[in-house]
């Protein structure tokens, strides 16, 4: 469904991403793990069109979408839940969701709002509340719901468990599992590697801007050198 070929992205003279090729198949949950600074956020940004890759390509459902503007990407069916959630704190919960569904028709949007209310009961209770008053866990659910409002074919999430208390981290992973059970396609960046691998069909390990390992979640969990691969410790 999604394929990147030799993706390289730089910030000025910094190569944040070097020659990254990965793929996500229909209905798969793919994890992308790696330490801080490995280039995970850059990778998602380059796929979503927030950043312009200097070389390589992004192919989504058979068509080359490299370098398209984010709104085009979204219309093509690629949604991103950004790092730190980035919900619109001045807008109410329902307004946040409506912004998420800005690309779909008005009647469809109403249906989707209902769907989100069912999927995230916490949000229904705070429908008209300003999103700035949500707790971290609620805000993360809102961010995911907001992205789902565009009916994405592929949902990308950037560090959904970041900055959450442990009990909320559990919640986030339960959510990922439930999304997987609905048959959605996910590409999730996480630093919480073990937990992520447990819910992934396949996963990639990114370090210093390069892919250093890949495999099924189970395979990677088995690998005793994962920690070293992960943070570059020499064993």
């Amino acid at each position: 469904m999604l394929e990147t070929v030799g993706l390289t992205t730089t910030y000025g003279s910094i190569a944040a991403l070097r020659d990254v090729s990965l793929s996500v198949g229909e209905g798969e949950v793919v994890g992308l793990i790696g330490p801080n600074g490995a280039g995970k956020t850059t990778l998602l940004g380059s796929i979503a069109g927030l950043l312009q890759p200097v070389s390589g390509s992004v192919v989504f459902e058979g068509s080359d979408v490299t370098g398209n503007a984010p709104d085009k990407m979204l219309k093509a069916g690629l949604a991103l839940v950004p790092e730190h959630r980035r919900i619109f704190t001045d807008l109410t919960v329902v307004e946040n969701l409506k912004v998420g569904g800005i690309t779909v028709g008005a009647s469809e949007r109403a249906g989707l709002l209902e769907e989100m209310a069912d999927l995230f009961p916490v949000l229904r209770d705070k429908w008209e509340t300003s999103a700035g008053f949500l707790s971290g866990g609620e805000a993360q659910q809102l961010a995911i719901a907001r992205a789902l409002m565009s009916k994405p074919r592929l949902l990308m999430m950037d560090e959904p468990s970041l900055g959450l208390a442990p009990v909320l981290v559990d919640l986030v992973f339960e959510l990922i599992e439930s999304l997987r059970n609905q048959g959605r396609t996910l590409l999730v960046v996480e630093q919480n590697a073990t937990r992520m691998l447990e819910v992934s069909d396949r996963a990639y390990v990114l370090r210093s801007g390069e892919l250093v390992a890949e495999g099924t979640g189970a395979e990677l969990l088995e690998r005793s050198d994962l920690f070293d691969t992960f943070v570059g410790g020499t064993s």
Binding site: A193, T194, M196, L226, F227, F230
Partner: peptide, 11 residues
């Protein structure tokens, strides 16, 4: 340390 980096049930 391993747990902090890799998540709770680190191998």
């Amino acid at each position: 340390v391993r747990a902090a980096y890799l998540g709770v049930s680190a191998p």
